[in-house]
Write a protein that binds this DNA or RNA. Structure first.
Length: 666
RNA sequence: GCCGAUGUAGCUCAGUUGGCCAGAGCAGGCGAUUUGUAAUCGUCAGGUCGUGGGUUCGAAUCCCACCGUCGGCUCCA
């Protein structure tokens, strides 16, 4: 009788198994369907191959493809198939790393003779991948010593570098060597005589488990993300457990494309980027300008309520200011080159507003009684973004921040930050975003100033405040600004994508550099703490996110045109204007009457395409009874015979409450 | 900045292996039509084919450089 071992399953039940039983055997003993679906196992929280042996006391779960972990295994294995396909098509190709990423995977290659992938190569590679999958190749794991690993991958320099890079950053590479039982080993997975890859695993038992994949695009990528290292050719792909899941993902990508603010911004005539002006520099057309105005007006109103003081500062300044602030030392790459004036004086376009607000603080002697001082400005800043980095309104070279700098005492800092976080989240909710998490960015390892102690105090204060907000908190190691750590609010939009919105940064440096002071209760001079914060982030970026969140169908209060009134015949036109002025009698109502020189259907269609929230049709019946026919955006049928008073009352409430619920919606 | 793709009327796109004055739909102007819920009809105008070089008897089409755009890398609000 063979010895026994006992394992625990996720439901808490226990199973007695023979010694030497593998994860695959366990799956088989639970059920043949599970065994067929299984791609990997989880033993004591660690993902392993199906072939991994079990030990007494293990907590085991069978991983199937329809889970996050299962899809990861699937994608990771598919990336190996991609690498094998590339080495078949380009003999001598070197393969670097091929990790799983959100929604897919990639693999980086260095092709022989400096060859490059083009889009048309993707089909060929996919075809070869399908052949490999059909060949039903096994994934065979081996563990080797470092020396044997180096010998095996002698003609693969990137693999060798990974093997030898046992160091602090080794963990970022999925295939890094591990210590097993005191000895450093590397693990490999062999698919065939000709293809073996360095990898931590786990993998599916055979390529036949794969199949629902698609290569998405090619791109250049620096080896280990370092601009100074060779640039490799990266292929992105994705894989799913079923054809349906893959198609659903592709549909999601289409949906994201449909919401693209650059496309909608053009279609809805909101803004453009004329070549004559330059990359990343937008102009806002009347409709886009109206949206901005409404956003900014509302923001101003809220800042007044939160006791901010409104300040203003110029767009250019002498170089000296940015020397003092440290920007020229730390941020010069992000700044436009200086312009030189006749007297040899250099002037810079400002990339940030903080130095200006600090000077306003310093314009007089400050007392502790005045603090906290909160200086707010819609400040336009210019940043010299790399030409490849600009992207619609979300990454531009000229933008307007809803920027403020709060000067307070160390004691006030915690409460001020807590208030601020409440303010931010409220404001974002008022614009219709509701799903948030927070990110805490800590000291950048290379570019930063200040003492460790200051950084620690600042970081811990932010952490405490963030935790107090009761939201999910994610750590962004090394992602802070050069002068201090930050909390950023991340928002999930209508289709689940996350966007970085507001940032709140703590800064002990700027007050020091500018020698900002206040007189304390005891009469001594003390240094204030500075909080940088932007709630929209930038007005441009926030508008882009709203456009994508709402797919262009902005809530009525934000819509550039809220109501379009269509007279059926031209003798209804006077009445149409009457309706417009009745609606406008209670405040700003952005209405337009479109004359009856085209069939009604054509005018309705145009208004629908322009995503106007309300189309009012007025004809004989309406003139006779003082009513309108309401065609609500998104509604299937119009509502006929509603009195102008009733509609106006509804509209007033909807706009005042910044509601997203339109007339007639359930 | 780097890698790849791409650039034809205001917009969306045709334009076969280089070969008559470069086409269509929508949008725009003009005229007619007076219309009850997603496209009324006619007519006119509109392009140095991103820019600059080159190859050729001949270039939107082939080559080079630059500019812009798109997808990534890096960076970031």
């Amino acid at each position: 009788m063979s010895p026994h071992l006992t394992v625990t399953l996720p439901d808490g039940s226990q199973r007695e198994l023979d010694e030497g039983t593998t994860v695959a055997d366990l799956a088989q003993s639970i059920g043949p369907r599970l065994a067929k679906a299984a791609v990997a196992g989880s033993v004591n929280g660690k993902l392993v191959d199906l072939g991994a042996p079990l030990h007494d006391g293990d907590a085991v779960a069978i991983i199937t493809p329809n889970s996050d972990e299962g899809r990861e295994v699937l994608r990771h294995s598919t990336s190996h198939v991609l690498a094998q396909a590339v080495t078949r098509l380009w003999p001598g190709a070197r393969y670097a790393i091929g990790p799983v990423i959100e929604n897919g995977f990639y693999y980086d290659f260095d092709l022989p003779d400096g060859a490059r992938f083009s889009d048309s190569d993707l089909e060929r590679i996919e075809a070869t991948m399908r052949e490999i999958i059909k060949e039903n190749q096994p994934f065979i794991r081996s563990e080797l010593s470092v020396d044997d690993g180096l010998a095996l991958f002698a003609d693969q320099p990137y693999k060798c570098e990974i093997i030898t890079s046992v160091g602090p950053d080794a963990g970022e590479v999925d295939a890094a060597p591990e210590e097993v039982g005191g000895a450093v080993v590397v693990s490999t997975y062999r698919n065939s005589e000709s293809f073996v890859d360095l990898c931590r695993g786990p993998h599916v038992p055979s390529t036949s488990k794969l199949g629902h994949f698609k290569l998405m695009r090619v791109a250049g990528a620096y080896w280990r993300g370092d601009v100074h290292r060779p640039q490799l050719q990266r292929i992105y792909g994705t894989a799913f457990e079923t054809k349906e899941a893959l198609e659903q993902h592709l549909f999601f990508l289409e949906e994201a494309k449909r919401r693209d603010h650059r496309v909608l911004g053009h279609e809805l005539d909101l803004f453009s980027f004329p070549d004559e002006i330059g990359p990343g520099l937008a102009v806002f057309h009347p409709k886009g300008g109206t949206i901005r105005r409404v956003m900014e007006d509302y923001s101003r109103k809220r800042h007044v309520e939160e006791h901010y003081s409104f300040v203003n500062s110029p767009h250019v300044t002498k170089a000296e200011l940015f020397m003092t602030s440290g920007h020229l030392e730390w941020y010069a790459d992000g700044m436009y080159p200086p312009m030189e004036l006749d007297d040899g004086q250099q002037y810079y376009l400002k990339p940030m507003n903080c130095p200006f607000h600090t000077l306003i603080y310093k314009s007089q002697q400050r007392s502790y009684r005045e603090l906290p001082l909160r200086f707010f400005e819609f400040g336009s800043v210019y940043r010299y973004e790399l030409s490849g980095a600009v992207h619609g309104l979300t990454r531009v070279r000229g933008m307007t921040q809803d920027d403020a700098h709060i000067f307070c005492t160390q004691e006030q800092m915690g409460e001020e930050l807590t208030r601020l976080l409440t303010f931010v989240l409220d404001l974002l909710r008022e614009f219709g975003l509701s799903d948030f998490y927070l990110e805490l960015s800590t000291r950048p390892p290379l570019k930063s100033v200040g003492s460790d102690e200051d950084w620690n105090v600042a970081t811990e204060t932010l952490r405490t405040v963030a935790e107090g907000a009761g939201l999910e908190l994610v750590l962004d190691e090394g992602g802070g600004a050069f002068y201090g750590p930050k909390i950023s609010v991340q928002a999930r939009d209508a289709i689940g994508r996350t966007h970085q919105m507001s940032t709140i940064q703590l800064d002990f440096q700027t007050p020091q550099r500018f020698e900002a002071e206040f007189v304390g209760r005891d009469g001594t001079k003390q240094r204030p703490i500075m909080i940088h914060r932007a709630l929209f982030g930038s007005v441009e970026r926030f508008m882009a996110i709203l456009i994508e969140h709402y797919a262009g169908a902005l809530p009525t209060w934000l819509s550039p045109e809220q109501v379009r009134i269509l007279p059926v015949r031209d003798d209804h036109e006077d009445y149409a204007h009457e309706v417009a002025s009745t609606l406008g009698a209670v405040g700003e109502r952005r209405t337009r009457v479109e004359a009856a020189d085209e069939p009604l259907g054509a005018r309705i269609r145009r208004a629908k395409l322009e995503k106007v929230p309300y189309i009012l049709v007025v004809g004989d019946d309406d003139v006779a009874h003082g009513t309108v026919g309401i065609n609500t955006r998104g509604a299937a049928d119009p509502f006929r015979g509603v009195t102008v008073q009733d509609f106006s009352a509804y509209l007033t409430q909807e706009i005042d409450e910044r509601s997203t619920v339109q007339y007639g919606a359930n």
